[in-house]
């Protein structure tokens, strides 16, 4: 997997252009001046060891196991595969029925994130401009409510009463109204100078157009960071789809993976293959949006993303 990952990154990078913070020019020097790989390696050996050796090693180990047949894994659980085989991947793909589920997951993870961002920005703007005083209190309340235990069955009964149970749209609506984004956008919008509003108003720019053409581009890093965290958290949610989506046709890929894990508890090579299939899209999204993360964090979006993640993982038991 490390190989695939590196490749994915290499492919992804040129399209991403220069990172927005590379104005100092130091960055481009490191890779851009065409030093040999060996030089880079010797210079970066310690970094690679630290990042890959500690944080990726367990995953690499898992990925290597995915290329072994089950019987070989049992006899030789720690070594390299004697003959690399991809059958686990094809088996997992077929057995897990991941194809349709991946499409569902894409809907469940991207739509609520997009909706809650849009809603959040439209609501956050007037508040950031001071039409509402108690934001700090609300903000605090919100953060702490993330740590209140969520009763799964009351949530279910509520969803059922509102007709959101066992439907794709219902699931999207439920996840769109989490509201976390809203509070964190408030802080970010405050950093946008007020003069912009006035200038736009002078130009006869309507509210909706103003938000869409001025504010949203201005908030790009925050939105991207928030989007990534929201996407990842929604993608990884296992328990909520279990309760809210009964029909197999509606399952997201994590629900499928959950059952897949249950069906193949001992067959680690097969499970590894399944995990890699399910995790790959998240890794891709993350790699693509990574460059916005650091900037977005400055606007407090990480807290928002984190709170969403915390709230979602509450249900993840």
């Amino acid at each position: 997997m490390s190989n695939q990952l590196t490749k994915g990154l290499d492919r992804g990078q040129p399209g991403m252009g220069t990172p927005p913070w590379s104005d100092s020019g130091r960055a481009t020097k490191v890779v851009g001046t065409g030093r040999s790989i060996l030089q880079v390696l010797s210079r970066h050996g310690a970094y690679i060891l630290l990042s890959a050796g500690i944080f990726a090693l367990p995953l690499v180990y898992l990925a290597v196991q995915a290329f072994k047949p089950y019987t070989e894994f049992l006899r030789n659980p720690t070594g390299l595969p004697s003959g690399w085989t991809a059958t686990n991947f094809s088996d997992a793909w077929q057995q897990g029925e991941f194809a349709r589920q991946l499409v569902n997951s894409l809907v469940y993870a991207s739509m609520p994130t997009a909706i809650s961002i849009l809603l959040g920005v439209f609501l956050a703007f007037p508040i950031a401009r001071g039409y509402f005083k108690q934001t700090n209190l609300l903000y605090g309340l919100f953060v702490f409510s993330g740590f209140l235990p969520v009763g799964l069955i009351p949530l279910f009964i509520e969803a059922q009463a509102l007709g959101l149970y066992n439907s794709m749209m219902g699931y999207v609506v439920m996840n769109s109204l989490v509201g976390a984004g809203f509070f964190f956008f408030v802080g970010y919008i405050r950093t946008i100078p007020r003069e912009r509003d006035e200038a736009a108003a002078m130009d006869g720019c309507g509210y909706v157009r103003f938000i869409l053409t001025i504010i949203i581009p201005e908030m790009k890093p925050a939105l991207a960071a928030f989007g990534v965290f929201g996407f990842v958290a929604a993608w990884n949610n296992m328990i909520l789809p279990l309760v809210m989506l009964a029909d197999e046709d509606l399952w997201p890929v994590t629900r499928g993976l959950y059952s897949f894990l249950g069906e193949n508890v001992q067959n680690w090579p097969l499970i590894s293959a399944g995990i890699i299939i399910v995790a790959a899209p998240v890794v891709c999204v993350f790699v693509l949006a990574q460059r916005y993360l650091v900037e977005g964090v400055a606007g407090g979006a990480v807290a928002g993303g984190h709170a969403v993640a915390a709230q979602v993982s509450r249900n993840d038991g």
């Binding site: 069955i153 279910f156 009964i157 328990i239 279990l242």
Partner: peptide, 23 residues
């Protein structure tokens, strides 16, 4: 047929939601 694995009370959650839905 609907099924969910037992660990982490996944099955319990499924049963309770189905009971609540009276389905």
């Amino acid at each position: 047929m609907r099924h969910a694995p037992n660990p982490n009370n996944a099955y319990g959650a499924l049963v309770n939601s189905q009971l609540a839905a009276k389905s």
